[in-house]
Design a protein around this nucleic acid. Structure first.
Length: 293
DNA sequence: AAGCGAACCTGGCTGC
DNA sequence: TGCAGCCAGGTTCGCT
C-alpha cells in the first residue's frame, strides 16, 4: 500500500470526481474485506452527497451529507480506479466486454453524473467503515493515531519526546502509527538514509538531553518531512501495477535511494558503501551501514 | 508494559 | 512448463 503520499495522491484523484456529488448507487460485492462491512452499508451510502474528501495518516475520510463519515483504508493492495461517464464507444465496449468488473473489485460507487469509482483489493487487508462525524476522532481507527508528519507538530523536539525511553530500533519506532501516523516501510527506510541514521539504533538515543533534543532528531524530522513532501509532489510513488486514482494506466516511477536496492552503491555523495537488506521485526529494511550510524 | 513474531490473503517472481 | 517457496506498501493479536 500506499503509505501517506500514495493515499494523499488517491485523495487528490478522487476529490474532483466525488466531492459535492451524490452517490447514486453503491455495489458491495462481498460481505467483508479485512473486517465485515458495517451494518446497512449500502443503505447508509446511497443517496448521500459526499461533501468532502479528506485524509488522516493512511486513511481516506469521506464526509457524507447524512452526518456520517466513510473511513477507507487501502491495506497493502487496495486501489481505486475511476471510470468516467460519457466515455467513447470503444472504451464503453471494452468495459462491457469485461463486464465492467475485474477480479477483486469489491466496491463500486456510482457517482452522480455518470462516473464510477471502483475499489479493488486483492489481498483484502483494506477496509471501509462508517461512523458519525462527531465520533470520528474517538473512533477505533483514529483514536490511537500519532501526529501527522506533514502537520506543524513534527520537529526534532517532538520526535525526541516521542522516542524518549524507547529501546526499540528507530525502524520500528518510525513504523509505530501511534507515534507518527503515515509512514510505512518504504519511507521509513528512505528517511533514515537521508538522516544518516542506522535503522538499528535505539529510538531513545534521540531523546531530549537537558531539555535539548539530540542534534540528529532535527535531522530526522526534516528528512521525514522532505521525503514525504517530495513523494506527494511526485504524485505518490507507485510500485508495480499500482494505478493512479485518476484511472490512468501509466504509473509514476519514484526514485528510491535505498528501498529495494540491495547490492547497489549507496547514493550518498562521497559514500563508498553498498545498500544492504536486513530483516527487522519481520520486515525488510534497506540501508547503508557505512553512512547510516 | 514494551517489544517481538505470527497471522490475515492473494499474486508475482525466482529457482529448481 | 510446473510447482514449491519466498516475498510484498499494513495492521492487529497474542505471547514473552
Amino acid at each position: 500500500m500506499p503509505e501517506l503520499p500514495e493515499v494523499e495522491t488517491v485523495r487528490r484523484g478522487l476529490a474532483p470526481i466525488m466531492e459535492g456529488r451524490r452517490l447514486i448507487r453503491v455495489e458491495q460485492r462481498r460481505p467483508d474485506l479485512r473486517f465485515p462491512f458495517p451494518d446497512r452499508f449500502i443503505e447508509r451510502l446511497e443517496g448521500q452527497t459526499l461533501t468532502a474528501m479528506g485524509r488522516r495518516a493512511k486513511y481516506l475520510i469521506a464526509d457524507l451529507s447524512s452526518g456520517e463519515t466513510l473511513i477507507m483504508h487501502l491495506g497493502m493492495s487496495g486501489r481505486f480506479t475511476i471510470v468516467e461517464g460519457g466515455q467513447s464507444a470503444l472504451q464503453g465496449e471494452f468495459v462491457h466486454q469485461a463486464g465492467g468488473i475485474a477480479a477483486h473489485d469489491h466496491v463500486v460507487f456510482h457517482i452522480e453524473g455518470g462516473a464510477r469509482v471502483i475499489y479493488n483489493d486483492a489481498r483484502r487487508f483494506g477496509f471501509m467503515d462508517l461512523v458519525p462525524r462527531t465520533a470520528l476522532a474517538e473512533s477505533r481507527h483514529m483514536k490511537a493515531l500519532g501526529i501527522e508528519p506533514l502537520g506543524n507538530e513534527l520537529d526534532g523536539a517532538r520526535l525526541a519526546a516521542l522516542f524518549a525511553g524507547k529501546k526499540t530500533p528507530l525502524k520500528a519506532a518510525l513504523l509505530d502509527q501511534s507515534l507518527i501516523a503515515g509512514l510505512g516501510n518504504i519511507y521509513v527506510c528512505e528517511a533514515l538514509h537521508r538522516a544518516g541514521l542506522s535503522p538499528r539504533r535505539a529510538a531513545g538515543k534521540l531523546a531530549l538531553k537537558g531539555g535539548k533534543p539530540h542534534a540528529k532528531a532535527d535531522l530526522l524530522a526534516t528528512a521525514i518531512r522532505d521525503v514525504l513532501v517530495e513523494a506527494v509532489a511526485a504524485g505518490g510513488s507507485t510500485l508495480r501495477d499500482y494505478a493512479q486514482a485518476d484511472g490512468s494506466l501509466g504509473y509514476f516511477q519514484h526514485a528510491f535511494r535505498v528501498y529495494d536496492r540491495e547490492g547497489v552503491a549507496c547514493p550518498t555523495a562521497g559514500c563508498k558503501g553498498t545498500i544492504k537488506r536486513i530483516v527487522q521485526s519481520g520486515r525488510s529494511t534497506f540501508f547503508c551501514a557505512s553512512c547510516q550510524k
